Simulated scan of single mutants.
Amino acid sequence: MSLHHDLGDVGIASALRRDGRVAGALYLVVVLTGIFCLAWVPSQLGTDAAGAAAQVGVFRAGIAAFLLMQVAFLLLPLAMYRVLGDINRHAAVAMVALATVSVPIGLVTLSHRLEALALLESIGQHPPASVDAAFQLSLQRYGHGMFIAKLFWGLWLLPFGWLVLRSGRLPRVLGLLLLLGGVGYVLQVFGGLLPGFANSSLSNYATLPAALGEIGSCLWLLLFGVRVGVVRTHSA
């Protein structure tokens, strides 16, 4: 009986390590594509249609990266469920649900980016002023959609961070950073509805713990894997 039990624990530990590596690889895709399309691409584009048209290839690459990010982000919480789902089923289901909700929001939001791309390709066929006005409107709609998606990018971190803290399968400091980051995202979204908050120091640094926690979790899973000293501690 003891031998069968030990073999079962070995199999569970092996599965956890494998699932952790898969989750880490998916997280790496999310992190890299997110940095590219949400940070680097906007920094390369001008503030008007003419400036963006000069970098239309970069604009296209940003759209492709965003699509890839959404696919990876759809799979990531499912992979994390396999790593943490046995710790607390309700929290794990909430983690998956909150992350998954953001994907259709992000894809609908991306449609405005595609509208903007079509406008860039039509420069020269219409008066520049009308193209630029429509381009700015498309980007504004894109920004509004991202504002909503950001709420769920934060909410999923709350059950995720709690599961990391409770399980100990990743360093607990990462769980704390994920929790603080989730709160930061929510604060940034609701605070953004208040006048002047968007330009405050609190808004600028609210999501820093999330960045540290998510990049840290990604690297830990890839480099060290899941801690399996204690495995499958079922909890309702």
Rank of each mutant, 00 (worst) to 15 (best):
A13M: 15
R18H: 15
V31I: 13
L32E: 04
F36R: 07
C37S: 15
W40V: 15
P42D: 10
S43G: 06
L45W: 03
G51D: 05
A53W: 02
A54N: 02
Q55L: 04
V56C: 05
V56H: 03
V56K: 01
V58N: 10
F59M: 03
A61H: 07
G62Q: 13
F66M: 13
L67G: 12
L68D: 07
V71M: 08
A72G: 10
F73T: 05
F73I: 00
L74N: 00
L78G: 02
R82I: 01
R82S: 05
L84P: 00
D86T: 09
D86E: 13
R89Q: 13
A91M: 10
V96W: 07
S102G: 14
V103E: 06
I105V: 13
I105C: 08
G106P: 03
T109S: 12
R113Q: 15
E115P: 00
A116F: 01
E121P: 04
Q125K: 06
P127W: 00
D132Y: 06
Q136A: 08
G143R: 13
A149V: 00
K150L: 09
G154W: 05
L157F: 07
L157N: 09
V164P: 08
L165S: 14
S167K: 07
G168T: 11
G168A: 07
P171K: 12
R172N: 11
R172W: 06
G175S: 12
L176M: 14
L176F: 14
L177M: 11
L179A: 07
L180K: 05
G184H: 13
V186E: 08
V186L: 10
Q188I: 01
V189E: 14
V189A: 10
G192V: 10
L193R: 02
S201V: 15
S201R: 13
N204T: 08
Y205N: 10
A206P: 06
L208N: 01
P209G: 05
I215A: 04
L221M: 07
L222R: 04
V230L: 12
A236I: 05
A236D: 09
